[in-house]
């Protein structure tokens, strides 16, 4: 399993098989809900390489990246503060858990009412959903710092700045990254959901419109695009994590 050949080929096998199976079973099918994959692929090329990218993909990606970025900054910042102040963390924990399980989509109507239907609303909704995994994981990671490292930090008279940026955040970073990965998935969902309600651009809007006009190959192409974008974002995140946590990877071997 460790050869590069095996590492690249083995994960590719199942997707290839599934695509081929889809391709042949949908070819010549009569259901209008499941158009042939060849037709979907044609549409995909026409629409997404790259005619409609500026109109629909760019705003969606912007919403996700802004939402995720704000969630990371807020989540890590607040998480470090709360994680280092045990009493405060205990005090706010019930509220955090409540907010975490309150689905951010449920806040959509209110957000539209308060903020309107612009991109600010969509970014806000993404933050309201994506913040919690990062925040809670950061708190956990910060509270889990090894007491031995605390001793070393104290006997070397670490200043607060060095303590937070050289010890606390690196030490919590494996958990912070796990939180970011969970938040990415939430961001994609909320991006899509927020575009279903009162948007005039974006992939979510496009898929809904295609369905309303019974343009099913277009709808399918949008769904596939959404999947590809989610997958690609995850690959980028994993690559960042791979380099940022090189020390942790070595630690697990």
């Amino acid at each position: 399993m460790s050869s590069p050949f095996a590492r690249l080929i083995v994960p590719a096998l199942l997707p290839i098989v599934l695509i081929l199976a889809w391709w042949y079973t949908s070819e010549g099918g009569s259901s209008i809900f499941f158009p042939p994959l060849s037709q979907i692929q044609e549409r995909f090329q026409e629409l997404w390489l790259f005619a409609l990218v500026p109109e629909h993909v760019v705003p969606s990606l912007q919403s996700i990246l802004w939402g995720l970025w704000i969630s990371i900054v807020l989540g890590v910042g607040l998480g470090v503060l709360l994680g280092l102040n045990g009493y405060v963390a205990t005090a706010v924990n019930p509220v955090l858990q409540f907010l975490r399980y309150l689905p951010a989509v449920a806040l959509l109507p209110l957000a539209i009412q308060l903020i309107g239907i612009g991109q600010e609303m969509r970014v806000t909704i993404i933050v309201l959903g994506a913040l919690w995994p990062i925040l809670l994981n950061t708190i956990d990671g910060v509270r889990g710092i090894s007491p031995g490292l605390i001793d070393v930090a104290r006997s070397n008279r670490l200043r607060n700045f060095d303590w937070i940026f050289r010890v606390v955040i690196p030490s919590a970073s494996p958990q912070i990254f796990a939180g970011i990965r969970a938040s990415l998935a939430v961001s994609v969902i909320l991006m899509f959901a927020s575009e279903l309600l009162g948007a005039s651009r974006g992939i979510g809007y496009f898929i809904l419109e295609a369905q309303r006009q019974f343009s099913l190959p277009e709808m399918w192409s949008g769904m596939i695009l959404l999947g590809i974008i989610g997958y690609a974002l995850n690959v980028v995140l994993m690559a960042i994590e791979y380099f940022a946590l090189a020390w942790h990877r070595k630690a697990r071997i």
């Binding site: 090894s146 006997s155 200043r159 690196p170 020390w247």
Partner: peptide, 26 residues
């Protein structure tokens, strides 16, 4: 003072070189 504990308590995200020089860096 220099203190050595029962566990090495090195910072796993720093190389040995950086760990050894950490007090100087601070």
């Amino acid at each position: 003072l220099g203190v050595v504990f029962q566990d090495a308590n090195l910072f796993p995200w720093y190389s040995i070189e950086e760990n050894i020089a950490l007090p100087l860096k601070l």
